[in-house]
C-alpha cells in the first residue's frame, strides 16, 4: 500500500520534472509569442484554426478560409475578408490548440509547460531552503540544549503563530518580487515544522552511543552534526521536504496569483491563474488548467510523504 503511494507520487512528480526540463526541446509554440491577437484570442481547448503558410515560411492565421471562384483563396480575420491570388502559392494548415489560448492569443499548453519550470523550480528551491534552515535550527537547538535551545524553540513557536501569507505580503511589499526573493521568502517562512522535527529527532539521537563516542573521541560539533547526525535525519528530512515541496508550490502560486511572486513574462502557474481570473466568465479554460496542474503536484508530493512516513 505505502509502496504504491510513493511510486504513484514519484511518477507524477518525475513526469512533471521531465516535461519541465525538456520544455525547450519539446515541439511547443513560443509561450510568450502573441502571433495573432485577433484570430487566436481566447480559443477554447481543442480548437482548430486555419493558417496560411507562405513559401517563405511565415504564417497568417485565419478564422475561415474559402476557395475563390477563379483560383486562389480568400480568408477571414474578424469581419474582413482578404483575397490571396493563386500565384502566391500559400499552403493551408489547420493547427490545433489542445488546451486553448489566453486572451492575448498565447498557446496555453506551451504556457502551462513553461510555467511548470518556474513553479517547480521555485517550489523545489524554497523547500530546500526551508529544510536546510529548519534542519540547522533544529539540530543546533537539539545539540546545544539549555538556553539556546529554549530561545530557538520560542522563536520557532512565535514564527509559527504569525499567519504566513500576511508575513509574505509584508515581505513582498518590502522586497522587489523576483524568483530569488520568492524562493527565500517562501523558504524563510516555512522552516518551522522541520526545525521541530529535527530537534526532537536530535534529542533522541543524542543519547545514543555513537554520538557520545564521536564526541568523546574529539570530533568537533560541526563534524558530529554533519557526519553522525545528518545521515540519521535524512529520512525525516526527505519526508518533510516532500510535504514542503507541495506546500511551497502552493504558496508561490498564491503569491504569483496576487502579482507579488515571480514577475512576468516568465509566468508561473499562479500567474497563469491570475491571467484567467480576468477572463473567468468568457474563457473558463485559462484559469482551469494551471489549477489542475498545481493540484497534481501537491497530491503527488503528499502521497510520497505519506507513503514514506507509513513505511518508516
Amino acid at each position: 500500500m505505502s509502496d504504491r503511494r510513493v511510486r504513484a507520487g514519484a511518477i507524477v512528480l518525475g513526469a512533471w520534472a521531465l516535461v519541465a526540463a525538456l520544455a525547450p526541446v519539446l515541439p511547443l509554440r513560443d509561450p510568450n509569442a502573441q502571433p495573432d491577437g485577433l484570430v487566436l484570442r481566447s480559443l477554447p481547448p481543442m480548437s482548430r484554426v486555419a493558417a496560411l503558410r507562405s513559401p517563405d515560411g511565415s504564417l497568417r492565421y485565419a478564422a475561415e478560409v474559402a476557395d475563390e471562384p477563379g483560383g486562389g483563396l480568400r480568408f477571414r480575420r474578424g469581419a474582413s475578408w482578404t483575397t490571396v491570388p493563386a500565384s502566391e502559392r500559400v499552403e493551408v494548415l489547420h493547427p490545433r490548440f489542445v488546451l486553448g489560448t489566453d486572451a492575448l492569443g498565447r498557446d496555453l499548453l506551451a504556457r502551462l509547460i513553461w510555467g511548470a519550470r518556474v513553479s517547480l523550480l521555485a517550489g523545489a528551491l524554497a523547500a530546500l531552503v526551508a529544510i536546510a534552515l529548519g534542519g540547522a535550527v533544529g539540530a543546533i537547538a537539539g545539540l546545544a540544549g539549555g538556553s539556546l535551545d529554549a530561545l530557538l524553540m520560542r522563536a520557532t513557536d512565535a514564527a509559527l503563530s504569525i499567519p504566513r501569507l500576511f508575513l509574505l505580503l509584508l515581505l513582498a511589499a518590502l522586497f522587489r518580487p523576483s524568483l530569488a526573493t520568492t524562493v527565500v521568502l517562501v523558504g524563510g517562512t516555512t522552516w518551522m515544522v522541520a526545525a521541530r522535527l529535527v530537534r526532537a529527532e536530535t534529542l533522541s539521537l543524542k543519547t545514543r552511543d555513537h554520538l557520545a563516542a564521536a564526541r568523546s573521541s574529539g570530533a568537533s560539533p560541526l563534524r558530529v552534526a554533519t557526519r553522525h547526525l545528518l545521515p540519521h535525519l535524512a529520512a525525516i528530512l526527505g519526508i518533510e521536504g516532500s510535504l514542503r515541496l507541495g506546500q511551497a508550490v502552493l504558496l508561490e502560486a498564491s503569491l504569483s496569483f496576487l502579482g507579488l511572486g515571480v514577475p512576468p513574462p516568465s509566468a508561473s502557474w499562479g500567474g497563469l491563474i491570475a491571467d484567467g481570473r480576468d477572463r473567468l466568465l468568457d474563457a473558463w479554460w485559462i484559469a482551469t488548467w494551471p489549477g489542475i496542474a498545481l493540484a497534481t503536484v501537491v497530491v503527488a508530493a503528499g502521497l510520497v510523504a505519506e507513503g514514506a512516513e507509513d513505511r518508516l
Binding site: S254, F257, I273, G276, A287, L294, A295, V298, G302, L303
Partner: peptide
C-alpha cells in the same frame, strides 16, 4: 486529498464559475 491539495484561490474561482 484533492480538496486539501488544490490552491484555495483556484477553488474560489471554480466555485464562482
Amino acid at each position: 486529498l484533492v480538496l486539501a491539495s488544490v490552491p484555495t484561490f483556484w477553488l474560489g474561482l471554480m466555485a464562482i464559475l
